[in-house]
């Protein structure tokens, strides 16, 4: 499984993501700088977490318009797997790869804590090693993870089974609509999520709940 991790100035969880990908899938991802215009040949592109461009203007807005995103958008439409986590989710949403938008947490504060995530769709490249309906622990660390979209979009996301992860057991940390923690595009090639599965894969992290997500990449 060949993967690439895209780095913009201000991204800061690229090391965490690369470590998780390498630890679980066994192959080291390549790092791609935002000024590149073409991705290397890979099976998966990850846009990691952080504060690209300081989250100035809007989270993810400036990164979404950088050169490499043009190529990512084009290839995602042809089926390249794209995973956006936290700021990465904000970036790919701003880039139009996923519908809706992530706005400030309901209580206006940054929040870093463990939440419960329910796997709503286990037929994706990131969840195929999980049971449908399984509930796992996973940390969040964000100030703007409150997912919103218009009623029509929400209806479609739900009807088409495109909500991949939902906050469970009353742990919604940000006020997201329908407890949405992660969604995918129509074809399933693009997944975005706010929580950080890369920080929950080894005993040091307290639990290893999110390891199967990365193991899913090997099967996909």
């Amino acid at each position: 499984m060949k993967s690439a991790v895209v780095v913009f100035p201000g991204i800061n969880r690229e090391r965490d993501m690369m470590l998780a990908l390498e630890t679980v899938t066994g192959s080291k991802p390549v790092s791609v700088w935002h000024t590149e215009t073409e991705l290397p040949k890979v099976d998966l592109v990850v846009v990691p977490g952080g504060f690209s461009y300081g989250d100035y203007l809007r989270c993810g807005a400036i990164a979404a318009r950088s050169p490499i995103m043009q190529d990512i958008r084009a290839k995602a439409l042809k089926g390249l797997k794209v995973l956006g986590v936290c700021n990465g989710f904000q970036i790919i949403t701003e880039a139009g790869l996923l519908p809706g938008v992530l706005v400030r947490n309901k209580d206006l504060r940054f929040v870093c804590r463990q939440v419960k995530l329910k796997v709503e769709n286990n037929q994706t490249f990131f969840t195929n090693r999980m049971q449908k309906g399984a509930i796992v622990s996973c940390p969040v660390a964000h100030g703007e993870g409150n997912y919103i979209c218009d009623a029509e979009t929400l209806k479609r996301l739900e009807a088409e089974n495109r909500v991949v992860f939902r906050y469970a057991e009353g742990t919604n940390p940000n006020g997201a609509l329908n407890d949405i923690a992660g969604i995918m595009n129509e074809s399933g090639s693009v997944i975005g999520m706010m929580p950080h599965p890369e920080n929950m894969i080894e005993p040091l992290h307290g639990r290893t709940d999110c390891r199967p997500l990365f193991e899913s990449l090997l099967a996909a």
Binding site: V103, R104, L108, N146, I148, G175
Partner: peptide, 9 residues
């Protein structure tokens, strides 16, 4: 109609 938590605060 878009929620504005900062405005609310």
């Amino acid at each position: 109609g878009v929620l504005d938590p900062q405005g609310k605060a």
